[in-house]
């Protein structure tokens, strides 16, 4: 009888421990799984013509204008700083050590493949992702989301799909602008310092020659995916806001998730490539 009681207590404790581990694991995995599911949902919705009603098209245009148009100046300014700090320094030190032939490869590896997607992702997250967290969070906690559903409007198609795809396009656009700006400013500064000889076209040709065929696919894809995950994680963070949660809870959560999403995409592409 006593042994039976002891066994019941042990089983109870084991079950409680397993439940705690399961709860922790589910909590940690819930958002990444939701992100994957929502990403697939956006892809499916995005290719369905009926999803692109005029309200969805207007929301897509509005987000694109806000993210790509509004973020262009910040991106070019950051690109100029990156050009000064990174490209001109690389050109200077490689020139000094007689390793000029490595210039193109180094710039492609560091600037185009690694730094550009991360910095563009951060700009998108700060300027547009956090805006989505705030706006969608307010809709979720204020009851407007339910109101939209009651009007027969699917918030996923109207808000999540359009914003995620608009940020994907913005990621590509701003990424290309960033790379061009950084290369141009880096070259200009190095020319002024006298650490590079030759024309801008020769410098660009050197960089392009260092790019492999895979780079022409991987870099644009990485930029698209970075913008996409920033949009998706921000929208989902906003939409899943509980009624008692305010901006002071949502903003740090949205920022942390956005950074993790950007870094995950970056590392995944680097690992594959």
């Amino acid at each position: 009888m006593k042994r039976h009681g002891l066994r019941s207590v042990l089983v109870f404790r084991l079950r409680a421990a397993l439940a705690a581990i399961g709860h922790w694991a589910r909590t940690q995995l819930r958002f990444p799984l939701a992100l994957l599911a929502a990403g697939w949902g956006v892809m499916l919705d995005g290719v369905r013509p009926s999803s692109w009603r005029r309200t969805a098209r207007a929301e897509f245009r509005r987000t694109l204008r806000q993210a790509a148009g509004g973020g262009l100046v910040s991106t070019l300014f950051t690109a100029a700083l990156a050009g000064l700090a990174m490209v001109s320094q690389a050109l200077y030190w490689l020139g000094l050590t007689g390793l000029d032939r490595l210039t193109g490869g180094l710039i492609v590896t560091i600037l185009l493949r690694e730094v550009t997607p991360v910095l563009v992702g951060l700009i998108l997250l700060g300027r547009s992702g956090m805006l989505s967290v705030t706006e969608l969070g307010a809709l979720a906690t204020g009851g407007q989301l339910r109101s939209l559903i009651g009007q027969g409007i699917d918030p996923f198609s109207l808000l999540v799909m359009t914003r995620s795809l608009a940020l994907a396009v913005s990621g590509f656009t701003l990424g290309i602008a960033f790379a061009m700006g950084a290369l141009f400013v880096g070259f200009l500064f190095s020319s002024l310092l006298g650490s590079i000889q030759g024309s801008l076209w020769r410098f660009i040709d050197e960089v392009l020659t260092a790019m492999t065929a895979a780079d022409y696919v991987a870099i644009p894809l990485k930029l698209l995916f970075v913008g996409f995950v920033v949009g998706l994680s921000s929208c989902l963070t906003g939409l899943e806001a509980a009624p008692e949660e305010d901006q002071s809870v949502l903003m740090p959560r949205g920022f942390a998730r956005g950074i993790l999403a950007v870094m995950t995409v970056n590392i995944a592409f680097t690992a594959i490539g």
Binding site: S50, A138, G142, Q144, I149, Q151, G152
Partner: peptide
């Protein structure tokens, strides 16, 4: 299904008290 539900809800006019307006 979702599409028919949305289409049918489009035929409802509603004055609601909470969450009626989006400030966006």
């Amino acid at each position: 299904d979702n599409r028919r539900t949305a289409a049918l809800r489009a035929r409802v006019g509603r004055v609601r008290q909470r969450g009626a307006w989006s400030d966006m």
